[in-house]
Amino acid sequence: MVTTKSPKQRRFAPGEVIISEVTPDDLKSLAEGYYASFPARWFDSIEPAHLRAEEDVRVARFAERMTPWISEPHTRWTKAILSPSSPEYSASDPNRVIGHAGWLLPGRTRCKIMSFWRRDASDALGWREKMGWSREYEDELWSGTDLKSYQGSLLLWDKVREGYLCGVGHWHLAPLWVVPEHQGRGVASLLLQDAIKLADEENPAPPMYLEAMRDARPIYEHFGYRGIEGEGEKFAMIRNPPDGVEVREKGK
């Protein structure tokens, strides 16, 4: 997923944005960026006002839920930050994450299709035991979320992905975001290019799959993704589709 663009600004020059791997120290900034970047209608459905905690609590809970993600094998979690060479670099906040891409890699998706965003991923992947969380503590981490709405969407997306790619190792993108003030400036392209370069070095190049909002499709199409014909056609996109997966023409 990626969000809509902000008003037109200059694109970043080469070297102004640094793409690197996420560390545990980045998780708070990642959570802040996630809440800043996605549209209000998304949060209204999964974190409705009557359940929603204060912003600092929401950020802390989400950062904690992400903690086990970045140590899982066969994943790639990347961040975009501003280089000191950028005129917009802030010495007071030098490591602020302005964009993020999270990928599940073929070594994982070949054997199991499960989005890390799902509530039941913790049970399936043993995160509670790994992190030393009690069940009560983990329930608290999710207490601001409408789990029926939230889990329902993710289960549907995984069901659709499994129908197309069960047993096929692929790159799965979830999520991709750029903070509003830097959208439309080339950051999302850099995050995508980082992964595409690595995927295309494999022989044969594996499929790359994602779920995208309608207004985000053009950037993915620019990098070779196409909408899928059939179940999930409103959100599913794929690059390097395997035999039997039908895709739409660019712009359709």
Rank of each mutant, 00 (worst) to 15 (best):
G163I: 03
G132M: 02
P39E: 11
P207F: 04
P206T: 00
A188R: 04
D25C: 01
S20L: 14
L155K: 14
A212T: 01
P24F: 03
G232P: 05
H74E: 07
E72V: 09
N95K: 14
S149Q: 06
P87Y: 15
T67V: 04
P48V: 07
R52W: 11
S86P: 01
R11P: 08
P48W: 02
N240H: 14
L155R: 11
D123E: 15
V187E: 04
D120C: 08
V247E: 06
F12M: 00
R58F: 03
D93S: 08
E201N: 07
E162R: 12
E233Q: 11
G163S: 02
L105P: 04
F43T: 02
A53Q: 10
C111M: 09
A63M: 00
P204F: 00
L210P: 00
K159T: 13
M213H: 09
Y209S: 11
Y150D: 10
G230D: 10
R161T: 12
R185D: 03
W177C: 12
L176P: 01
E221R: 01
L27I: 06
L191I: 03
D243K: 13
F223Q: 08
R52L: 07
A121F: 10
E55G: 02
I238L: 13
W103D: 08
H172Y: 12
I113K: 01
Y225V: 06
R76L: 15
R108E: 09
D56A: 12
E140C: 11
E231R: 10
D26E: 07
G244N: 07
A121M: 08
E181T: 00
D139T: 12
V247W: 05
H50A: 07
D146Y: 05
E201V: 14
K8N: 13
P39A: 05
V97M: 07
G244A: 01
M1Q: 08
K159F: 13
E229H: 11
P241S: 00
V22N: 05
L104P: 00
G167E: 03
E21R: 14
A199K: 03
I98D: 02
E32Y: 05
E229G: 04
A53S: 08
R248S: 11
A36L: 01
T67E: 10
R239M: 07
R239F: 05
L173A: 15
V57H: 08
K250F: 13
P39Y: 05
K28Y: 01
D158I: 00
L154N: 02
H170S: 13
G144Q: 14
G99N: 04
T3L: 10
K28V: 05
E32V: 10
T78E: 12
N240F: 14
R110I: 10
G167K: 03
E129M: 08
R119Y: 14
S29H: 12
I70P: 03
L82I: 07
V2E: 08
R226S: 11
R161G: 03
K130T: 13
S92C: 09
G251F: 07
G107D: 05
A40P: 05
A216S: 08
G107V: 01
L51H: 06
V179L: 06
S90F: 09
Y209T: 12
I18E: 13
S122V: 13
Y34D: 15
R10N: 10
E54L: 15
G15P: 03
